[in-house]
Amino acid sequence: MSMFKPRGASLLVALAFASATAFAADSPHLGKPVSEADIKAWDISILPDGSNLPPGSGTPAEGAKLYVDKGCNQCHGDNGRGGASNMLVGNPSLTADGITSNKTIANFWAYPTTLFDYIRRAMPWPTPHTLTDNEVYAICAYLLAANNLIPQDQAMNAQTLPKVKMPNHDNFIIKFPDKI
């Protein structure tokens, strides 16, 4: 602070600086406002509590047909038993091969919502973002039923899917809980 300037001026400078940092008024603000409705097609993240699950529904029987029709079996094998890509149905030991053990939906996955989120955003591998919400629900239902995690006739939808109890759910530890 210069001792040759009047005290009031330096106080003003200090106030101006403080207000600039307080309201980020000096940042460019070049983003274009956009409505959540316009973002909807991209807003595909599903949270573990079921937030953002879309309307729709599907049964295990519908999913079993889609599993073949959509070519899921080409990578994941007949009935989800595994092939070039991960095994989807089956409950192998998590401890048999240590750190390289086969992590499956039945023995490892902690959240049923991850299933919907990942299938809708990433599958089928060659043609993602092509399944309808009903189809995704149906394939989720098929995989959960084939793993005996839900009854064979239970439909999956925004209400039922988050309630599915995953066997390994309670066996996870968040590594740095103090930072969350």
Partner: peptide, 17 residues
Amino acid sequence: QPAMTYYESRNYSPLRQ
């Protein structure tokens, strides 16, 4: 809340025993 996506709750969640 965290989304627990495939890559954080499956692929990059290491096993321990």
